[in-house]
Design a protein around this nucleic acid. Structure first.
Length: 521
RNA sequence: GGGACCGUAGCUCAGUGGUAGAGCAUCUGCCUUUUAAGCAGAGGGUCGGUGGUUCGAAACCACCCGGUCUCACCA
């Protein structure tokens, strides 16, 4: 049960005292007629006695949480906070009555009250409410961290004793939100970003859908899943690592433009940019290719940035990122050539490995069988760190994904010959958008050739049996859908949490997720 | 999983071997336009946990718990 320190004990005593006065400390409702922001922005100073008197006749009713109390004998100032901001309340014994004033003395920082009164400006210049009456709406039992704000003569706001313990902030986010204004701002921006993305997609006639979180076969990405169990069916199920294969089924079913915001779950490490559950938006557009997706991706992000920052620029860790379209577009092999000087298109695999070893570009020996994977690896270790301004990297080796179409420039015969030669790298119409060195998403001209699709997925399963981790089991029903026929299609996945981080200058993914995963205490 | 660092009052933090401190918050008194309100006084701690070293541990050592950063992992 709750620990009984002196502060809590005292509040229980106050609670009993309030009840003893016949007051319900937890009433059912309260009529709110205004809010702190509206009151402060709409206030105009009276020009004469008449106007002053007239203002006193107008009663407002507000409600909020007490954030500061300054008792001065028979009068008290306090600040209450509502969802729009803070406003000062001026409360005199002679106005509210001796009994009520006595009750007010039993209130604490954190308690929620309703106040009725008129608006005025104090001697020191703050627009405030002169209370006729107040009503206790919730007596609180736990003390709130005391955070004090000082406004300097230059108008700067200094926060004293900020509630800063990161662990406590994440574990008790409700307290974080109450006392740290900037935290609430970030989450308001998060929602605005999501709304903006939806608006951009809806304007382009994309249709919002919902697909399963619980899946009997996981796929669409390369990641370790969370496993759970369904009792009635007595089967193991997986929490989705991606919704890609289901959205494609819907395109097969005739939904030409679909999108879904989903929580994906990946059973992997936790760090500054990874949480086990995270949010992605994926959209699929029939009859388009990956260039269409680049265009739309730029538009989606630029508009989201404007929605929260008022301009297509965001400052992250002191670096100004310009999301104005068009973004830079660079082929992966060109990015490698520019950075390392190596033209991988006329380098054989052995020479590539030598080059990487000679230049200390690390790679996992398990990928050494594939020239394509080596190239993708070289790109990651050599080039990613330079991708600060928004950039599309495109044309990935096909070995990096089984779900993407090869480049259109290959003839069918050429492709057949290339497949036989391990020195030949087939490139696929895949791109990844980068900003501040992070992958912001992933996109393909989707593979809709059922024969090649089956072959690539079967190869992946084979590699899985060969010990390569994190490949997924063969999804026969998905292959069936592709055999039923999917129109030419392009699809995009966008990492919402990382985008929110970039647009709100947040240093950890935990700062943009209300309740990040923490080890239970 | 490796490495570095952190855990002291409700909150923010000082305290490096001699028995626990400050500011805010809380409580009492004064104060009817204050705003980090002020003035005077008071209470509040198993110093993350367990073991060890020592005459003596918040401090030193070991292990454990929780966290932060970082590396590894991560399409």
């Amino acid at each position: 049960m709750s620990e009984q320190n002196d502060l809590v004990k005292r509040r229980f005593e106050e609670l009993e005292e309030i009840k003893a006065h016949g007051i319900n400390p937890y009433p059912h409702r309260y009529d709110v007629t205004s809010d702190s922001k509206a009151i402060i922005t709409s206030f105009t100073d009276p020009q004469n006695e008449e106007e002053t008197e007239a203002q006193k006749q107008v009663t407002v009713s507000v409600a909020g949480r007490i954030m500061a109390i300054r008792k001065m004998g028979k009068a008290t100032f306090c600040h209450i906070k509502d969802s729009t901001g803070k406003i000062q309340i001026y409360l005199k014994r002679d106005d509210v009555g001796e009994d009520a004033y006595g009750i007010f003395k039993l209130l604490d920082i954190g308690d929620i009250i309703g106040v009725k009164g008129f608006v005025f400006r104090t001697k020191t210049g703050e627009v405030s409410i002169h209370a006729h009456s107040f009503e206790l709406l919730c007596k609180t039992l736990k003390p709130l961290p005391v955070v004090k704000e000082e406004i300097t003569e230059t108008g700067e706001k200094i926060i004293h004793d900020a509630f800063a313990d990161v662990e406590l902030r994440y574990r008790q986010r409700y307290i974080d939100l109450i006392v740290n204004d900037h935290v609430k701002e970030i989450f308001i921006k998060r929602t605005k970003i999501i709304q903006s993305i939806k608006r951009t997609l809806e304007d382009q006639k994309f249709f919002e859908v919902e697909t399963p979180t619980l899946q009997s076969i996981y796929g669409g990405a390369n990641a370790k899943p969370f496993v759970t169990h369904h009792n009635a069916l007595d089967i193991d199920l997986y929490l989705r690592i991606s919704n890609e294969l289901f959205l494609k089924r819907l395109v097969v079913g005739g939904f030409d433009r679909v999108y879904e915001f989903v929580r994906d779950f990946r059973n992997e490490g936790i760090d500054r940019t990874h949480n086990p559950e995270f949010t992605q938006v994926e959209w699929y557009q029939a009859y388009g290719d990956y260039f269409d997706s680049m265009n739309l991706f730029e538009e989606v992000v630029e508009k989201a940035c404007i929605a929260v920052n008022g301009k297509p620029e965001a400052t992250y860790s002191g670096t100004v990122l310009n999301f104005s379209s068009p973004w830079k577009r660079v082929r992966m092999v060109d990015a490698i050539k520019e950075k390392t000087g190596l033209d991988v298109t006329n380098t054989d695999k052995a020479a590539l490995i030598d080059f990487m070893k000679a230049n200390n570009y690390e790679f996992d020996p398990k990928i050494a069988h594939s020239k394509g994977l080596l190239i993708a690896n070289l790109f990651e270790v050599a080039c990613e760190e330079d991708l600060v301004q928004p950039t599309f990297i495109y044309d990935f080796p096909i070995d990096t994904t089984p779900l993407c179409k090869p480049l259109r420039e290959y003839s069918m015969q050429q492709l057949e010959e290339m497949k036989k030669d391990p020195e030949q790298v087939i490139y696929a119409e895949r791109f990844e958008p980068y900003a501040y060195k992070w992958e912001l998403g992933n996109s393909y001209t989707e593979l809709n050739d059922p024969v090649l699709q089956r072959k690539l997925l079967e190869e992946q399963v084979e590699r899985g049996r060969g010990g390569e981790e994190e490949t997924h089991p063969l999804d026969e029903d998905f292959l069936n859908a592709i055999e039923v026929g999917m129109p030419p299609t392009t699809g995009v996945g966008l990492g919402v949490d990382r985008l929110v981080m970039l647009l709100t200058d947040s240093q950890s993914i935990r700062d943009v997720i209300f309740f990040p995963l923490m080890r239970p205490q």
